[in-house]
Design a protein around this nucleic acid. Structure first.
Length: 661
RNA sequence: CGGGGAGUAGCGCAGCUUGGUUAGCGCGCCUGCUUUGGGAGCAGGAGGCCGCGGGUUCGAAUCCCGCCUCCCCGACCA
């Protein structure tokens, strides 16, 4: 049975303005997109009702700014970055700072078009907020002091402090304080596509981690938490659609809220070895979390009577491995202590912290930082260890509670008779028990989950993967609205703070990930939805060029984004550059193709060339592009699902998933 | 910030250890001729503050010191 797909609302609007009879794309196997957008339309006359979003004009290669390079500049490590440089999409100006050349700009614009469509569809309205922020703005939320050097600061000529925008919560909250007065003004979703600067300590992998970058950031404003949850779920859905449409397989994982604060967050991850985040995944139940927050199942320790504490000499045994060997006990019978200094907002001095986990586990620094409310942790210096009453290799929570904040993993808290250090060189203590021998300041889950650990949901073995964070969504709550005085009058007559959420996608990073995902040895292979052009005409020879000019005019007239190689280069050069640039359809016009009665079409994604009669070429291409678009969405949906395993429980897709067709 | 590496023509690199007179190679670029469906051939050419500053030396791309920049590995983020 065939279901007719609905045109999206926006598509209906634009289609109404087209005089042609439009047909729907054919099913190409697998799932179809939820709705069809205007660009999915197949027009029998080869016309498209509106210019393709994000693509404003066809282009001649002779006018293009930016050379293709045969060899990638040194320093470009990953394939995607190398190809973007070689293809003339981007150039690096400084560490983490890039120029976009015309081809790169066009890819950006197309990604942005998808972002705008999906944000609009989610009820968003576009704004454009300043990149230069008065310091006062950031002081009001306290982030001027808490964020650190990542926030780039400068002074103006009158010695006033400013910051370069690294995110826009403060500005949005300030605006909301004047624009939103009543519950009738809510909910709202504002978004922008704007430059950000973060003085990242370590830019890396080209566009994947730049310091200056464009970001789509959206902010939801709601009356209450229920409203926030609705918008959050809607954004979650929109993000899934966005990455599907762009052709990037990405999965949602639970995440730490980090410097944003708030009550919950998901990150959208592109799984790749070049990623710098470690994700903890469960293939069995779909649990998926950033390692920073991933949990593991901890078997409840067996109950046993508390034994008297006793000293034991362990000369030279300063590691858990030594201890296991010398005392002949399992690592799970030991307690391991880690000494760190924590930066806690509001505290003038750093807080000394002693963290205790079982010897067979490792501390997760993010969890530990969250447990003490710290923004930053670093190892203690030797002097600080002494001041804390500890001895390197023999640190222990026993007897130091007055000098350090003791944080105990919840498993240690319920484990009896552990072996711990004695805060004395060469000495350990047997039968150490929390409560009797020491008092913790905090008990929390502070251990790291990793490969092979049991899943906290279903018990199956977890595995880890690397990923790049291409997007995130945060439930901010009222932190920013309260700080900036953004409140509204509710229908019960009381003044309430606006409940906020924030939702980001790095545009350049998304482009970099796409380049990483879609390439082969010869070059890039852009998904049709984000390619800088849809067709690339190679004009071979003088006769070929003359015929190509006509084809170019026809395609341009049909609204098909076309790049014409009019440089008069040899065929091999043109083909090699076409492969490098990675435009989906290559059209060859040459004496040979003319003799064969048409235009030679070859798809960058592979397959044989076909010759299409000249009279049919425009409609043929329009149809093929339409098929490619539909096929892309279907392929991405299945691919994403396959990569995520059966992502459900852990990924916690809120609300209903995409409608099955 | 800690550790490792690199700055020589537009791009990729050699030369440096063991200082030496005019700094090379491939690709690209310019001119001409020939070629013309997978990065052409021949001939001729242009293009260098050898990252910057100081020092050693008769003489420094080369040795020494300082600085800057970029890349990679660890703590942060779209």
């Amino acid at each position: 049975m065939r279901t007719r797909l609905p045109w999206s609302e926006e598509a209906r609007d634009v289609l109404a303005s087209c005089g042609c009879t439009l047909s729907r794309p054919r099913r190409t196997g697998g799932a179809l997109p939820r709705t069809l957008s205007a660009s999915d339309a197949i027009c029998p006359e080869g016309r498209r009702p509106v210019p393709l979003p994000g693509i404003v004009s066809p282009m001649r290669m002779s006018r293009l700014f930016g050379a293709t390079l045969r060899t990638a500049p040194g320093g470009a490590e990953n394939a995607g970055h190398q190809l973007l440089l070689r293809g003339g999409y981007v150039r690096q100006l400084g560490q983490g700072i890039f120029s976009y050349l015309p081809l790169g700009v066009r890819v950006l614009r197309r990604i942005e078009a998808v972002l705008r469509e999906e944000m609009d569809a989610a009820g968003g309205v576009e704004v454009s907020l300043p990149v230069v922020h008065p310091a006062e703005l950031w002081r009001q939320t306290g982030r001027w002091d808490t964020v650190g050097p990542e926030l780039a600061r400068f002074k103006d000529r009158r010695d006033r402090d400013y910051a370069l925008a690294m995110t826009h919560e403060e500005v949005v909250a300030t605006l909301a304080s004047t624009e939103i007065r009543s519950w009738r003004d809510l909910p709202r979703l504002v978004y922008q596509i704007q430059l950000k600067f973060r003085d990242d300590p370590r830019p890396r992998a080209g566009l994947v981690r730049a310091r200056e970058f464009t970001m789509k950031d959206a902010y939801s404003l709601d009356r209450d938490v229920a409203g926030l949850e609705r918008q959050y779920a809607r954004q979650h859905e929109a993000y899934t659609t966005i990455f599907d449409r762009c052709g990037l397989p990405a999965i949602a994982v639970g995440a730490d809220v980090g410097m944003m604060g708030g009550s919950g967050a998901h990150e959208f991850m592109y799984l790749t070895p070049i990623g710098e985040d470690t994700l903890v995944l469960c293939d069995s139940c779909g649990y998926a979390q950033n390692r920073q927050v991933a949990r593991l199942a901890k078997a409840a320790p067996e109950h046993e009577p508390v034994q008297p504490i006793e000293r034991v000499d362990t000369p030279g045994a300063s590691t858990i491995e030594d201890l296991v060997r010398v005392l002949g006990v399992g690592a799970e019978r030991t307690a391991k202590a880690l000494l760190v200094m924590a930066t806690v907002p509001g505290c003038p001095e750093m807080l000394p912290v002693l963290a205790v986990v079982r010897g067979d586990m490792t501390v997760n620094e993010t969890k530990l930082a969250n447990a003490v409310g710290a923004t930053d942790l670093r190892p203690m210096t030797d002097e600080e260890v002494v001041a804390a009453g500890g001895v390197a290799g023999y640190a222990s929570p026993v007897g130091v509670a007055d000098r350090v904040t003791v944080v105990v993993d919840d498993l240690v808290a319920t484990s009896a008779n552990l072996v711990a250090g004695a805060n004395e060189e060469g000495v350990h203590l047997r039968n150490v028990n929390m409560g009797r021998d020491y008092e913790p300041a905090v008990v929390a889950d502070i251990v790291a989950a990793g490969d092979g650990d049991p899943c906290s949901v279903c018990g199956a073995a977890l595995r880890t993967e690397r990923g790049v964070e291409v997007g995130n969504i945060f439930k901010l709550g009222t932190r920013y609205s309260e700080a900036m005085g953004a409140s509204f009058l509710d229908d019960d007559g009381t003044e309430k703070p606006i409940v906020m959420g924030s939702y980001g996608i790095g545009v350049g990073r998304l482009m970099a990930c796409l380049a990483e995902e879609h390439h082969d040895d010869a070059g890039l292979r852009w998904p049709v939805s984000v390619a800088p052009f849809e067709t690339h005409i190679c004009a071979i020879g003088d006769d070929g060029l003359a015929a190509a000019e006509e084809l170019y005019a026809d395609l341009a007239g049909a609204g098909i984004a076309t790049l014409l190689d009019d440089r008069g280069e040899r065929a091999g050069v043109q083909f090699a550059d076409a492969d490098l640039l990675g435009i989906p359809l290559r059209l060859t016009v040459s004496p040979r193709s003319i003799a064969a009665g048409g235009i030679e079409v070859r798809e960058r994604s592979g397959g044989e060339s076909v010759v299409v009669p000249r009279a049919e070429i425009v409609a043929w291409i329009a149809g093929r592009l339409s098929e490619l678009r539909v096929g892309l969405a279907a392929a991405m949906a299945t691919r994403t699902a396959a990569r995520a395993g059966r992502a459900r429980a852990g990924a916690a897709r809120p609300g209903s998933g995409p409608a099955e067709v």
